[in-house]
Amino acid sequence: MNTKPIPEMSDLSRHYWEQAQREALVLQRCTRCGTYQFYPRAWCTSCFCQELEWTPVSGRAEVFSFSIVHYPPFESYTDSVPYILATVKLEEGPQMMCNLLECDLDAVRVGLPVQVCYEVREGDFKVPQFRPVGGGA
């Protein structure tokens, strides 16, 4: 059983996680200036407009930075090392943290093209993750 953490969602982020259960990646987009943002906020950090629209995005990204973790930080990761903790930059601009799944440890590099995928955790909860485009890398 995958006992990795289930995020504690807020009213602000509930839609993001609900869409993730349907395997859709959505970002807030400002109705005034058009900027995409992540993570969810009550206002647009580019222009302070409070009218934001949830918008499906491509899920295409590239690796911005990463670390191959050898030392399990807490119990639910004991059987997962080594794993990759990465920051990816989405095609639409925002950056997000994730793990790189189905990725050869020798092949991970900054700039690697990746695509969103979903990891199933306890209670069938799906968490957005990324894997190399074309698989394996």
């Binding site: 995020p7 504690e8 670390s67 930080p73 903790l85 920051t87 590099r109 900054v110």
Partner: peptide
């Protein structure tokens, strides 16, 4: 040390978080 909702669920801890900047520097 990390965003409780959008970073922590990915297995964060302080060395791996600092490593995000270090690996970027190594690459650039």
């Amino acid at each position: 040390a990390s965003h409780p909702e959008f970073e922590f669920p990915y297995g964060t801890f302080i060395p791996a978080l600092y490593a995000q900047a270090a690996s970027r520097h190594c690459h650039e």
